[in-house]
């Protein structure tokens, strides 16, 4: 199986899409922020899909990992801003803190929630997300509801020009890299033992257990990986880019819903789906906000309904079926 030629060919279109976003943003510098928004949605979908697409488990509290990652970077920058000559070391520590904190949270959540199925899992994860937000506010940890505003710390560490460049350019580059890495990891998982085990699990969890697949182990691996990417996304797209964090903002459940929409539009469990979904979602939101400010949701919601009814497997899922048996099959995964 591992000797099958071209098993990573499917990376070409997805990586081309991320590279394309970057290049487009460079040649159209006045559209860079649009690219940044699109990259955020693609990356959110890609990271979310890593767990949901493979297992079929809907983690409704997914935004908690993004939020914790944001705090990881925010805490690092605000605590280390006084350290002489810390420079780019602070960024590295921040990213590590974000990844570490989201990994720890995912292990804790996984220990409780991964024993649950279907809707019980979805709701338990909502509970974790909401509970965590109220814990920050109620127990007054991490500055409680006042959140952390660290624009000045970013300036203190890097100087004004670099700080602005970090917020308006490099943070977005990181997001593109994180999205692309999530795509690579997704394909590696798909093509390895983890992928086969999780496919068996998605089809029939009990049967998978009976034939001796250690589903829990693979579930947890996929769950933690997905959470770490979410944490890194928070550290860059929310912390580094926006330079503030408030608890209700960082744990806003709406972002999970957006991740679901993106994955659904593209096709759950596909490699290319989140990118296509993210681009579709981000672009239509952007244009509607410009053409019809104030009405975009009213137009957008029925469109989603039509797409769900017409293509329940998402656009890429539909495409995948169409190209089955043709030369394109290897590229559209």
């Amino acid at each position: 199986m591992s000797a099958r030629p071209g098993k990573y060919l499917a990376l070409i279109p997805v990586l081309a899409a991320y590279l394309g976003m970057f290049v487009f943003g460079r040649v159209q510098p006045d559209m860079w922020q649009l690219v940044a928004m699109l990259a955020f949605y693609c990356c959110l979908g890609q990271a979310f899909n890593l767990f949901l697409g493979m297992t079929g488990y809907v983690d409704f509290g997914y935004v908690a990992f993004v939020g914790v990652g944001t705090y990881g970077m925010a805490l690092t920058l605000s605590r280390l801003s006084g350290v002489e000559g810390i420079g780019f070391g602070a960024l590295v520590i921040g990213l590590l803190a974000a990844a570490g904190m989201s990994a720890m949270l995912s292990i804790a959540v996984g220990a409780v929630a991964l024993r649950l199925r279907g809707a019980y899992f979805a709701i338990a994860t909502i509970g974790v997300n909401e509970g965590f937000r109220y814990f920050i506010e109620g127990a007054r940890i991490w500055n409680g509801s006042e959140g952390i505003i660290f624009s000045k710390d970013l300036r203190a560490i890097f100087g004004r020009e670099t700080a602005i460049a970090l917020s308006t350019f490099w943070a977005d580059v990181f997001v593109i890299v994180i999205g692309a890495s999530a795509a690579v990891v997704t394909l590696i998982y798909m093509r390895s033992k983890i992928g086969f085990a999780l496919t068996a699990l998605r089809e029939d969890e009990d049967a998978a257990k009976v034939i001796g697949i250690f589903v829990t182990k693979y579930k947890i691996i996929a769950f933690i990986t997905s959470a770490v990417f979410a944490g890194l996304l928070g550290a860059t797209a929310w912390a580094l880019k926006l330079t503030y964090v408030y608890p209700p903002d960082a744990f806003e459940i709406h972002y999970t819903v957006e991740a679901i929409i993106i994955v659904m539009l593209g096709g759950a469990g596909t490699l290319l789906g989140p990118v296509v979904g993210g681009l579709l979602y981000g672009l239509s939101k952007y244009w509607l906000a410009i053409i019809l400010p104030g009405f975009q949701l009213l137009i957008f919601a029925p469109i989603i309904l039509v797409i769900i009814v017409a293509f329940p497997e998402g656009t890429v899922g539909y495409l995948k079926k169409k190209v089955r048996g043709t030369a394109l099959e290897r590229y559209i995964v």
């Binding site: 809907v58 809707a119 679901i260 759950a268 919601a301 029925p302 989603i304 309904l305 769900i308």
Partner: peptide, 21 residues
Amino acid sequence: KAPELASLLATFSIGIILEET
């Protein structure tokens, strides 16, 4: 008969349509 995600999104969209109307 569609996947769970489809019905989640459908009900979510219905909610938005009601709210915006």
